[in-house]
Simulated scan of single mutants.
Amino acid sequence: MGVALKLVDAILFLFFLLITVVAPLIDAQTCLPLSYFPNILVQLKEHYTRHYDDYLVADKPHFFVGLVWLELLFQWPLAILNLYAVITSKPWFNTTCLIYGVSVTTSMVAILSEMMGSKRASEKLLTVYTPFLGLGVLAMLRGLLTCCSSKSTSGKRPALARKKRA
């Protein structure tokens, strides 16, 4: 189980690193003025939008802009905390990982439901978004995993202290 946990942590570390970089530089262009960003980043996002025909990024529906704000104000700081926690083996990593995973999973279910329900998303676009749902679920499971396995190994409850009689 230790090797599998290390592998999951490595995958999540790469995911958190990606989010730490992409969220403020690329995703933030959805809800902030483009004049705040260097032209090369704006062109990169425009190329992505055309190449994958990402209609959510192009059209900026209100629910999607709200989810990007959620990512920037809530998920992005948690991704930074999780990076730090993985590197330094902090005991609160399980909690922040669980919170992050639940938030990402909820956001991705809303986005993917819209894409599949509207029938506007190509298979190519779905292959961009779907892995983020999987990584959100993985983060959520990682947060739950060690919480559940923290029971004592003997299976016995600790003995209660008895009061002395006078």
Rank of each mutant, 00 (worst) to 15 (best):
R165T: 09
V102W: 15
I99Y: 04
S154N: 14
T30A: 11
M116Y: 09
K124L: 11
G155K: 09
T146L: 15
V65H: 08
L34G: 08
T30C: 09
L17D: 05
V137S: 10
M116Q: 06
Y36H: 07
L5T: 10
R165D: 05
W76I: 00
N94M: 12
G136D: 12
F13N: 08
L145N: 00
V57I: 15
I87C: 07
K163G: 05
D27M: 01
L32N: 01
S107A: 12
T153I: 14
L44F: 06
V21I: 14
F37G: 00
R120E: 06
P131T: 11
L160A: 14
C97K: 03
V137A: 15
P131Y: 06
C31A: 13
L41P: 02
T20C: 15
Y84W: 10
Y129A: 10
L144T: 13
I80D: 00
G101Y: 15
V137D: 13
N39H: 08
A121S: 14
V57N: 11
L18W: 14
E123D: 01
A58K: 13
S107R: 05
S118Q: 11
L41W: 13
K151F: 13
V21S: 01
L160F: 09
V65M: 15
L14P: 00
T127P: 01
S149I: 10
V109R: 02
D53M: 14
L72M: 11
P91M: 01
D54G: 04
L17I: 11
V22R: 03
Q75A: 04
P24W: 04
I11Y: 11
H62M: 15
P33T: 07
W76T: 02
N82K: 00
T49G: 04
P38L: 02
L12H: 14
S113V: 09
W76L: 01
G136L: 10
H62K: 14
C148L: 05
A159T: 09
A159L: 14
P91A: 05
G155C: 13
A79K: 05
V128P: 11
L83T: 00
G134V: 12
V128T: 11
V8N: 08
V137F: 15
Q75T: 05
G143A: 09
L98E: 08
A28V: 00
K6H: 12
G2S: 06
L70T: 07
E71F: 00
A23V: 05
T20P: 06
Q43L: 07
T49N: 05
N94Y: 05
S154W: 11
C97Q: 10
L56M: 15
S89G: 03
L135P: 07
I80E: 01
M116N: 04
P33C: 08
A10D: 11
P131K: 05
V104Y: 09
W92V: 08
V22L: 12
M140T: 04
T105A: 12
A110C: 14
I87N: 00
T95E: 03
K156D: 14
S89I: 01
C147M: 06
T30L: 11
P158H: 03
S89R: 03
Y48I: 02
A28H: 03
